[in-house]
C-alpha cells in the first residue's frame, strides 16, 4: 500500500513524487453550498504541489453534461481521474482524514496500482455487476 501522508511536509513530498497526470474534476454550486469554497481552496492547494495535477471546475446545476458524465449528485464533489475514470469520488470538503484519503487516492490513480493483495485482486476481477461503495467519514 502507498503510505498515507501524515503531515503537511509529507503531503507535499507525496504529491511531488507523482509521475503520471491526475485530473481533479471539481463540482461546485452557487447557492446553498457552505463548504464549496473551502473544498475549492483545498483542491487548488493540492494542485499547486504537483505539476501532474490539473483542476477542472463545473457547476452542479449548470453543467448537466459533466454532471451526467461523472455521475455526481451533490456539491462539493471531486472526481479523481487518471488515464481512465475509475469512479473515485469525494463528497464534501476534504479536511483532516479525508484530505489524507484524497491524497492517497491521487497517488493510487496516478500509479494505476491499487496496492491490494493478489488474493483480493483475483476476487475483484471476477465482479461483473455494478458495485457502489460509499464510505462515510469525519475529519477527525
Amino acid at each position: 500500500m502507498v503510505p498515507a501522508p501524515r503531515s503537511p511536509v509529507d503531503l507535499q513530498a507525496t504529491l511531488a513524487a507523482i509521475t503520471a497526470p491526475v485530473k481533479l474534476v471539481f463540482f461546485t454550486q452557487t447557492f446553498g453550498c457552505d463548504s464549496c469554497l473551502a473544498a475549492r481552496q483545498i483542491v487548488d492547494h493540492i494542485a499547486s504541489l504537483s505539476d501532474q495535477i490539473t483542476v477542472e471546475e463545473f457547476n452542479l446545476v449548470l453543467d448537466k453534461d459533466q454532471v451526467d458524465r461523472y455521475g455526481v449528485q451533490r456539491a462539493p464533489a471531486i472526481a479523481v481521474v487518471g488515464d481512465i475514470d475509475a469512479g473515485i469520488r469525494f463528497y464534501g470538503a476534504p479536511e483532516g482524514h479525508e484530505l489524507v484519503s484524497l491524497v492517497e487516492a491521487i497517488t493510487l490513480v496516478a500509479s494505476g496500482d491499487s496496492g491490494l493483495s493478489e488474493e483480493s485482486r483475483v476476487l475483484i476481477a471476477a465482479v461483473d455487476q455494478p458495485i457502489d461503495i460509499q464510505v462515510f467519514a469525519t475529519p477527525t
Binding site: 469512479g87 463528497y91 464534501g92 490513480v109 491499487s114 461503495i133
Partner: peptide, 30 residues
C-alpha cells in the same frame, strides 16, 4: 477496488456535511 474493476465505483462522503445521507443510511459512527 474501483481501480481494479470498472464495475466498481467508490465515494468518500464527509458525514458532517450531508445530514440527509447520514439519516438515510443510519450512520451512527464512522
Amino acid at each position: 477496488m474501483a481501480l481494479e474493476n470498472t464495475h466498481i465505483t467508490a465515494s468518500a462522503v464527509a458525514a458532517i456535511e450531508y445530514p440527509d445521507l447520514v439519516r438515510e443510511y443510519r450512520v451512527t459512527g464512522v
